[in-house]
């Protein structure tokens, strides 16, 4: 882990009318760090993440991601980050190979580079048998592993993962985390949300959002000490009260 920040956020705020979804959050994420971004449904995680990846404009505050300002250079941010959404976002009716080629093209990689990356991926994930299969026919665990790899195709500085392991079987979930460790070890910064509290323990540092604010931010070890908890699940239960039911929630609402 290098000692400089690739995400730098100061008093970042997002309002929707009278409703403050993200309320003046401040934090930094170091290069090569695995940063867990936790919070109850509706706490404002998705809104915060959308601002960081350059697809939602903050109401006020400051944020730099991969060296670019979220207000003035959102397009540069998009080129320098990877993003894996909670909802599976590859094309079901393209093959694994076609998806890799397509997303490689989107990120502006040359044909030669795409081919090289594809061969690397096939080798690393053991995709040999399924590279010509339609993505739609693969089990969820495979899809998620492939999505993650595709989010890394253009060697981004940071990769944002929004609940990457929801519903995935326990073995694949762990294989997925080993992929995360590996990329972090290679210097990629990982920004990840999850509802599995054992996964929170795998992070270098964890922030917990409650009602739009960051209530706690530290290493899992220090958080457990501070809140006198045996595991992160206990820390979470102590901190993350449910938001008032009157407030509309983020992705849970599907409005």
């Amino acid at each position: 882990m290098k000692n400089y920040n690739v995400i730098e956020v100061e008093n970042l705020t997002k309002k929707f009318g009278d409703f403050t979804a993200v309320n003046s959050i401040t934090f930094g994420v170091k290069k090569g760090e695995i940063f867990g971004f936790l919070g109850a449904n509706g706490a404002g995680k998705t809104t915060a993440m959308k601002m960081l990846i350059g697809i939602a404009k903050p109401t006020s505050g400051k944020a730099q991601v991969a060296g670019f300002d979220v207000f003035t250079h959102p397009e540069d941010i998009k080129k320098n980050i990877g993003y894996m959404s909670q909802k599976f976002a590859l094309y079901d009716d393209l093959t694994v190979k076609e998806n890799i080629t397509f997303f490689g093209g989107i990120y502006g990689l040359s044909r030669a580079k795409i081919k090289e990356k594809r061969c690397e991926l096939v080798e690393e994930l053991g995709l040999g048998d399924i590279v010509n299969e339609l993505v739609g026919s693969l089990p969820l665990g495979w899809k998620q592993k492939i999505s993650f790899s595709i989010a890394l195709l253009h060697s981004p500085t940071i990769v944002f993962l929004d609940e990457p392991t929801g519903g995935v079987d326990p073995i694949t979930r762990r294989q997925f985390w080993e992929m995360i460790y590996k990329s972090a070890n290679n210097g990629t910064t990982i920004f990840v949300t999850t509802h599995y509290m054992d996964e929170a323990e795998y992070c270098d540092r964890v922030s917990i959002m409650v009602d739009g604010k960051i209530e706690a931010l530290d290493t899992p070890k220090k958080l457990k000490e501070k809140y006198n908890a045996i595991n992160m699940n206990e820390v979470f239960l102590k901190l993350a009260r449910i938001t008032s039911p009157a407030l509309p929630q983020g992705k849970g609402a599907n409005i």
Binding site: N41, G166, H195, I242
Partner: peptide
Amino acid sequence: TGVDPVSRK
């Protein structure tokens, strides 16, 4: 599924 630990409890 997809529900946070507090709401799940």
